[in-house]
Write a protein that binds this DNA or RNA. Sequence first.
DNA 1: CGGAATCCTGTCAGATACTG
DNA 2: CAGTATCTGACAGGATTCCG
Lengths: 132, 132
Amino acid sequence: MQAGQDIAEIYIQRWNAAVGLPGPCPVRDVLDKIGDKWSMLLLMTLAGGPKRFNQLHREVPDISQKMLTQTLRDLQRDGLVARQVFDTKPPSVEYRLTDLGHSLIVPFGHLIEWANSSMADISASRVRFDAA
Amino acid sequence: MQAGQDIAEIYIQRWNAAVGLPGPCPVRDVLDKIGDKWSMLLLMTLAGGPKRFNQLHREVPDISQKMLTQTLRDLQRDGLVARQVFDTKPPSVEYRLTDLGHSLIVPFGHLIEWANSSMADISASRVRFDAA
DNA sequence: CGGAATCCTGTCAGATACTG
DNA sequence: CAGTATCTGACAGGATTCCG
């Protein structure tokens, strides 16, 4: 519980520091990416190796072209994904994880594992709650 | 990269399994909570010990009463937070983390640490990107 | 004190169509 | 192939008011 408190303080401090300041809390900023519907799914898809635009679109069919473009641009802007244009005909564009992108997969992985192993408990709790 | 791929598969598998099925992907479900503006902030605040309703409201002033109520109820529904009513006059209600709630703080902490140590890189990358 | 109910608004995802 | 542009609806979430 002590470790939890330390972490809590980092987060809460940064949050409070950001309140009222221009720009969002930098930590929240990362959390927004986690909560984003597509960012992490694309990142995880790219963890399997570099892919081209339409290749990504095929592997993540639910995403619209618009959101694919937009999410990739945001990921590139944050330095998590690198974009490389090949001057072929027709043009091809390849996306791949940067080192920073790879490094995010580690802590994100812990979260996925937690979700994976806790979803039964959560689900049971919901059933209990909804019964009342 | 191998570990990254394994994690990726868990996430992507669950995602694909959830597409078209009734109900949302259980993993995404957790991620939504992470991305939620208030859930984790409340959880981290409660990591410091049990708090009462208005006490939470004072410590997280930016949240509206509505969102405080709603977020706490969702957290309770998922079994991350326990709610205890004391039959005093006036009534008081105490919220505290459950064991499950505490356990989420661990992987979440890794994420906060990543965000904390990467925000400089991210920020720099954005400046570079926006310059172009 | 600890909420519930209602209204109202901005944001943003999705569909569709077009381009170099 | 790899995008851009525009329009639209849904919904998250804030403000306000009321209640046991």
